[in-house]
Design a protein around this nucleic acid. Structure first.
Lengths: 215, 215
DNA sequence: ATTTACAAACAGACTGGACTGTTTCTTAAT
DNA sequence: ATTAAGAAACAGTCCAGTCTGTTTGTAAAT
């Protein structure tokens, strides 16, 4: 679909594009081994795919757009990912790797961190890319089959991270509930303007924290 | 996009199509006034649009698909909705009307209703249609502008309904948090299999209820 | 009450462009 | 020299929107 304007109209996530390499780069730079060439091409394409998901949404993401964005010829793309489906599935896996890395990076030193930390797991470009895929997977069996097991890993990582940080203050169930709450707030942010959303969080989070941390 | 298979692969929502009037109906039945003809055509198209959102997702919803589904010629469609954008925006409004009606219908007589009632507001075909639109609106300014004010009305209705039912047992903030939690669980259901999801709800909801209803 | 004049509703062919995937060819690595 | 990587031309489908023509409703004129 894509109702004309492909410009973002929601929260302020627009990083993406991840400076992998723009079109017109001195891409070639020979001297690479075959394995290197393959790996670089794949990451370029997958990063571009995720970037397009973030910026254009699933509906606005075509293989051609991904090629353009990656600065890669369609021939190369089709060499590595012969079908769109294979590309999308690989992008899902790539995205999960990145999200897991992001979660591990964000291990907090401060032991007095608040529950608003959960919200960090549901923000940023990677979250929106994942969201696009969840929704698309609802009506796409192949995607659904690819997403389900991987998403379980991400959730487990979130849960484990929460337990490591809040385990002494919160019951396991309270942690799980916090995760779901954070996800709800993140989705709600899609159709609330930024100020309304911020006001709401600042009002609700402390109350939630009080409810949940006395254990 | 639409990675080949348009078949649903997620939760068990497949009602849709709403029996407005299938293709091949004795549609004509002259003797209708112009206003009637217009109204009937519009509802047929808008119901078909929402049905397609539920079954095929936003990415899989084209104007031609909507025409097919409604059993309406493209000429007629283009007469009433000259652009795809106008059709989609009208569908958003139509969907909001239906969701509000659904919410009002579901006023509960039982005063001892549990918080799992919040989850009902985030289930069923209409919820999935709305979800598709929220996500699509993230990267589509026109859609975003159309969705934002309308969604505020729906949320207000949910909040008011919650207050009417739980107002004596829960603080306003607890109600708002419950709504966000319900939304989070609904989205999570997209990438969890049905049994995992049910198990999770049955485990978390009572705990949540205990946390929130002592006021 | 008919007829005539006009407008709205509806139908379907057609156009230009974008999309996915195939095939053929060239260039780099081994 | 053989194989993989990368590029480019090509084929066929689908899509949104335009255009021409037909049918139905409405209301003025007779």
């Amino acid at each position: 679909m894509a109702t004309s304007t492909p410009e973002p109209g929601a929260p302020d996530a627009s990083v993406s594009e991840a400076r992998v390499s723009e079109a017109g780069d001195p891409v070639a730079a020979p001297g690479r081994t075959q394995a290197q060439r393959t790996a670089q091409m794949r990451t370029r394409l997958l990063d571009a795919a995720i970037g397009s998901l973030v910026d254009n949404g699933y509906a606005g993401t075509s293989t051609q757009e991904i090629s353009r964005r990656a600065g890669v010829s369609r021939g190369a793309q089709l060499h590595h990912f012969p079908t769109k489906e294979s590309l999308v599935v690989a992008a899902v896996e790539h995205l999960v790797e990145q999200r897991l890395a992001e979660l591990l990076d964000a291990h907090v030193d401060d032991d007095s961190a608040g529950v608003e930390l959960f919200l960090d797991a549901f923000s940023g470009p990677l979250f929106y890319a994942a969201l696009e895929l969840w929704i698309a997977a609802r009506t796409d069996q192949v995607l659904h089959a690819a997403v389900l097991p991987l998403e379980a890993r991400v959730n487990e990582a979130i849960r484990a991270g929460g337990a490591a940080i809040f385990g002494d203050r919160m019951s396991p169930e309270a942690i799980e509930i916090s995760v779901e709450l954070a996800r709800g707030l993140a989705v709600s942010a899609l159709f609330r303007n930024n100020t309304t959303d911020r006001e709401m969080r600042e009002r609700l989070i402390p109350i939630w924290e009080a409810m949940v941390t006395d254990k």
